[in-house]
Nucleic acid binder design. Structure first.
Lengths: 217, 217
DNA sequence: CGTTTCTTTGAATCCGGTCAAGGTCCGTGG
DNA sequence: CCACGGACCTTGACCGGATTCAAAGAAACG
């Protein structure tokens, strides 16, 4: 990622408390489940995942929850059009996060411009992913949703075996389903020989073409 | 909108064929139902709605359709992270559209920077709207979806009576429902005295607080 | 007007949700 | 090492909201 260079080019502090005024970024640790920022909190900081996984969630008054997206190493999050975060962000697992002060980035000249460009790219990519997510939520069946999810994740990690960084409830809230339905669909996909699980967190895609076919649009 | 000034500051051609190289924008007319750009078409142009209404849609192989968003006077559309359009855009009604060549904008100095800023704002706003749309598709009931839609549209036009620029099928494809369900929910909202229709395209919100309550999160 | 297209309504069906058990995985401590 | 507890996942039976299928009604258009 283009921000990686900056991280090394300028020493960052391993401070727990934030003192980013003048410093370009602070590296922070978040424990699994810990909140990174809250819904409706002022959005003057942006975040880059160094390691671990993050989810952004939105809650309705009665407890219904929608997950916006999952973020992994290299991904930027927390960029908003307005002044407030519209989703909250929580660490899925223990995470290292680089925290940047948005307003301070302009003062870094050419380097700052580079960061601004990275932010633009991240926003446009987020929009792209969110549009894909729209299609999934609006017009796909439960089975197609789960299949899409498994393929997307496998494509991100590009390894033979993929480990789910999240539980069934998070998958359900991302896909607009219940945990029971997610579970049933996983069982079904496995019964049809499209994927193979070893434990409930590790899977291998066994018939990629068939899986891709039920997702294609 | 900030692009309005440019439109007048520099004479635009009423040309049907596009010759935007060197010209900052071309004003075009599109008839109702006409395609503005296609899914998977190269995305080197961006568009601003001057008058009329536009929808962006995505089609799956088997005909399932999802509408990304509706655009009205002043809105920018067609901005992509990649090189291809991921949705197609069609005129809902007769439209005047200002067509801009993205690559040419850099050559307009200070004015170009202004446009770049407007593009960034449009992208961030699109992301915000799409995230709201996610919540709607993933976690709201049919009735809440339709209520949200009517409120959102009324808030955009800020007039006592709102005229729907789209038919039931477009509403359904935006909300992830069928036309029948949309129709039933409209009937129901009307029966409960929350809105009042005169003809199937014109409505007035009669109990805004109650309507807002079933949408709030 | 007559025709076509769009919208509404009704009845039957079905996918995914709800409710309720049971099972599995782990970490902890006896 | 095994027993226990708790969190998470799976499975089954039933339910209900939204879809599907079908037809009637309203609006748009030449």
């Amino acid at each position: 990622m283009s921000l990686q260079a900056l991280e090394y080019g300028r020493p960052t502090h391993e401070a727990a408390a934030m003192d980013t005024f003048g410093a370009i970024g602070v590296r922070m640790h978040f424990a699994a489940g810990e909140e990174i920022y809250a819904q409706e909190e002022p959005a003057d900081l942006i975040y880059q995942v160094i390691s671990g996984a993050v989810r952004t969630t939105r809650l309705m008054g009665d407890g219904r929850r929608q997950i916006g997206d999952f973020f992994y190493g290299g991904d930027l999050l927390g960029i908003e059009a307005g002044s407030e975060h519209r989703f909250s962000a929580e660490a899925l697992s223990d995470c290292e996060i680089l925290v940047l002060k948005r307003a301070a980035l302009r003062h870094y000249g050419e380097q700052g411009g580079q960061i601004e460009r990275a932010i633009w790219q991240a926003t446009a990519k987020a929009l792209e992913r969110t549009q894909e997510h729209l299609m999934l939520l609006g017009r796909k069946t439960a089975c197609e949703k789960v299949a899409s999810f498994l393929l997307d994740l496998a494509d991100r990690f590009k390894s033979e075996v993929t480990t789910l960084p999240m539980g069934r409830q998070d998958m359900a809230d991302y896909l607009g389903l219940t945990i029971e339905t997610v579970s049933r669909m996983l069982t079904q996909l496995q019964a049809n020989g499209l994927v193979e699980f070893s434990g409930c967190r590790r899977y291998r895609i066994t018939r990629r073409a068939a899986l891709a076919r039920m997702v294609e649009d």
